[in-house]
Design a protein around this nucleic acid. Structure first.
Lengths: 210, 210
DNA sequence: TAGATTGTTAATCGATTAACAATC
DNA sequence: TAGATTGTTAATCGATTAACAATC
């Protein structure tokens, strides 16, 4: 199993290689990739070991070949189907983002507990009541669940989604969610992030002033 | 300097202690905090060493006292002033979120390069043209800069904000941004996160099927 | 007192970096 | 060939966990 951190970097490196492809750069050294990405050259070479694509000491890496191999590993061409729970501000921003910009991600359905929001379409996705989650998911195989509820019921929704067979979850709520082994969960706690940045910004200002 | 990971956990623990305060729970053991947070009890005790608030073997930790001490450490009562660059969907969602829910964060100004968006107020923040960033920041001390531009100019904006004296940055764009020492930067790359979750969800499904 | 938990140090684990023989 | 870079192993660094004497 390739570590999470390596996958993260490979995703970024792939976008960098895409730019190099656009400018018709045929070869690239790990040192150049380091400059472009901010990762160390040693780390890039180590990450590329997981990809199984060899460069050579003369030219470095073949941009096109490496790109293709990373794409194969990440399977970025495969479409992921998703559902979203919580059609508030953030939920709508996410829906909107994906309906426009992300060809390989499709949102199949959205859910909300506000009855006035259901039976509509938002950014191309039908909106159902939260009580219908299990019912709707019976008929479809969904890869990823997105939780954008405002508060407090994130865990119960996560539990439902896991029970329905979803293997990947992204939780944008401020309540950290826990899932059993065998489920990949990403907690994006924006409130926590802001508090963290506020803390370190203060520390750094104080450091500078002294 | 307290490590980032510890600060993250203290922020979460503080919200858990808040709930315990609400239910008038006077004392709590590290084992109970572990159950509530998902962190190990050993890790919680280690984190609390940084806080400098001692529990005791008989009752555990005094909820109210520990809460107050963490609040003091994190300075969560101090208001942070922020500016936001890029008034698109995500930018508006963030503005909206903070104007409603976060009393200790105020957005002082927003910036966009679309002229039709300027000279208005969005969620209580005046919107200026991007070219005015340096000018506006001359008159105000801003703690945190939020970058929600759609693409490609995130780095140049980050560089401007750093030059204006901002010490904390949150970059929501899909372009990773680099800053010098002495600046705290959080890259929240939502596109990357979705690709990562898609990858691991696929891996986990394949594992299960075999 | 006996039993459980704390605060803290030592051991372990995992990830990053340094080093270098093999290679072009 | 000489010089630079690769792929990979060893060394280092940092964070988490285990262990346990001190404590209530």
């Amino acid at each position: 199993m390739i570590p999470t951190k390596t996958i993260e970097r490979l995703i970024i490196l792939k976008t960098i290689l895409q730019k190099l492809l656009d400018t018709k750069t045929p070869y690239v050294f790990s040192r150049e990739l380091s400059k472009l990405s901010g990762y160390s050259a040693a780390q890039i070479r180590r990450d590329l070991m997981s990809v199984g694509y060899a460069g050579n000491p003369k030219n470095g890496y073949d941009v096109s070949g490496l790109f293709t191999q990373i794409e194969k590993l990440l399977q970025t061409k495969t479409t992921s189907s998703m559902i979203l729970v919580g059609v508030g501000n953030l939920g709508r921003a996410v829906l909107n983002h994906f309906s426009r910009l992300q060809p390989n991600f499709t949102i199949r359905a959205a859910f909300d507990n506000d009855i006035s929001k259901i039976d509509r379409e938002i950014s191309g996705a039908p909106v159902y009541h939260i009580s219908q989650i299990t019912e709707v998911l019976k008929h479809e195989t969904i890869d990823i669940g997105i939780i954008t509820v405002p508060e407090s019921d994130a865990q119960s929704i996560a539990t439902m989604l896991v029970a329905s067979g979803i293997k990947g979850l992204i939780n944008f709520s401020s309540e950290p969610v826990h899932v059993p082994e065998g489920i990949y969960l990403e907690n994006i706690n924006i409130s926590m992030t802001f508090k963290k940045v506020a803390y370190f910004a203060r520390m750094l200002r104080q450091e500078e002033e002294s």
